[in-house]
Nucleic acid binder design. Sequence first.
DNA 1: TTAGGGTTAG
Length: 752
Amino acid sequence: MPCSIPFKTHFQSSSLTFASFHPSLLCKMISTTTLSPPPTHLPSLPQTPPLSLIKTCKSMAQLKQIHSQTIRTGLISNPIVRAQIIAFCCKHELGDMEYARMVFDTMPEPNHFVWNNMIKGYSRVGCPNSAVSMYCEMLERGVMPDEYTYPFLLKRFTRDMAVKCGRELHDHIVKLGFSSNVFVQNALIHLYSLSGEVSVARGVFDRSSKSDVVTWNVMISGYNRSKQFDESMKLFDEMERMRVLPSSITLVSVLSACSKLKDLNVGKRVHRYVKDLKIEPVRVLENALIDMYAACGEMDTALGIFDNMKSRDVISWTAIVTGFTNLGQVDLARKYFDKMPERDFVSWTAMIDGYLQVNQFKEVLTLFREMQAANIKPDEFTMVSILTACAHLGALELGEWIKAYIDKNKIKIDSFVGNALIDMYFNCGNVEKAIRIFNAMPHRDKISWTAVIFGLAINGYGEEALDMFSQMLKASITPDEVTYIGVLCACTHCGMVDKGKKFFARMTTQHGIEPNVAHYGCMVDLLGRAGHLKEAHEVIKNMPVKPNSIVWGSLLGACRVHKDEEMAEMAAQQILELEPENGAVYVLLCNIYAACNRWEKLHEVRKLMMDRGIKKTPGCSLIEMNGSVHEFVAGDQVHPQSKESYSKLDEMSVDLKFAGYSPDTSEVFLDIGEEEKESAVYRHSEKLAIAFGLISSGPGVTIRIVKNLRMCVDCHYVAKLVSKVYNREVIVRDRTRFHHFRHGSCTCKDYW
DNA sequence: TTAGGGTTAG
């Protein structure tokens, strides 16, 4: 419902509209609520004048008694009495705004004091829309606001409201001549920093007298809000130069900025300030100090303050938990988390995020379940952590559940949540849903575009990824180095060597991005896949940065596919110089020797592995069924349904042999007979997971598996046949890419 | 008869 500000007296020609507001909220509140009238038969109160009684009043029940007495005695006709009753409802912690409105409606001509109190009351109870409605009503009835009105009105504004009507209200303030009032100025700085127009806020700040510490505080917190922590610091310095004494609130904001910037020096300076100026170490300030020291990794100092606090709240505890999680000391963090007397959604999310940071994804999900059992409502921060864990585990069902939860609970899908959803869907191999989320996002940032490009690329949709890239450029979003990884990855997946080279060059010439080691790795992958092994090697030799094991690993992978044992040896040697303990390299080299029938060489590497005590990482596959993640390790029988899975595997083996399957043991490098080799590949973890998937789900249900190592040729072959024989889509995410098996073929086009 | 500012997790 459009609501024009009826500012008739001063704005005859004004076109001001408050289209965004719903003053009906207020009307609704009043019309649908049954108001309890003041009680009529009550024991008589002591004969104290009602105004003094209201001042000492403790509850709404008491207020209603006083109200009723004033009605009986006729004192209610005094407008000051009604104003005080309203003021109590608007200001008191237990004040009731519905009651205030009821009394308000009995006043034929409420004065400024009453209007201001009503506005303040609605702001206090978190109904800024109703406060605006009240403001509109005030103007409509020809009462001009005064300098008290605006600080009350703006106090609880939301970002949206600030964006939509900040400028208009500023206009009113200027025209009414209140712009030099320091309280109004402070409210305006707050308003603009809320709407994200921090430079306009700064303009108001610069025009102010700057003699009031609150003005500085509002500006500093405004910079913090818009994450311009450097500016907060500069302002703090300027304050010192201008000899404005900081208050404890200034110090809290500055400490918050120090924490974000990890600026221990200024943080310590603030701490000295607290000590030298003998500022009372209130809890909020101590919390801010703990957070600053924790963020800078100084846990001993943080704990020193924590231990000496008179009283701690949930923020003090959470700051300690976060301090440890940031250092990766998740067990210590958990120790404090478990000791917390109370935990809120932030503390739970902090601990969950701690597990995420150290890649303990299962613990992430376990803790999330505990959080739910404790009846703590997660918010969008929690959702991001859980979705990220789902993405790593390939847990699509849980990810979908989170999506449904977000929808049901109307959790805001901001760009963080949107991007996490996109990542989750892509990492679980559900390209369609990832794109659906992307298309529905109102604000797509660089990260959203990059997530889509990269997601499409790793899922084998190279052409589509490049199409997205050109759409991104058309939308005037500047790509960064991560976007280009996605672009190059897309070229690799489609074997578009020339295009890839062109993009690689354009990255620098058009967007000024210097390629880093990851980009060179992509180029090696691109050339290697196409069989240009020498050229790939040339890229490594000429790259200006030191190649890492991933770059050499790409070349080694290409050598496996194109069976170039000589270059493979060289690449493997390079990797082992960098990472002598890298078991996967020995294994890959053995695979290559086995595939080339170079048994002597293979024995040498095997002996080297034994001598150096290097063990082959056991293959492990995760499969999610009915909301739980199941783990299968090659050859193990730990899973409760492993017996059934093995029986299914036997059955599969017969079915697949009818379809022409014979085991491919070319990559088995164990010195064993052919039969044993077959038995070894037979028990690979992804086969067990596929068998489990087949017995645990109905016909036509997609089987999604996440594997910790590269898929072997035999498993790849089996997955292709399963997709055909059982008419099932099988999606396997291995160490480096996705394999979507459909109707007997794979999107990786047999290169991985 | 009425005012303002702050801390924790992506």
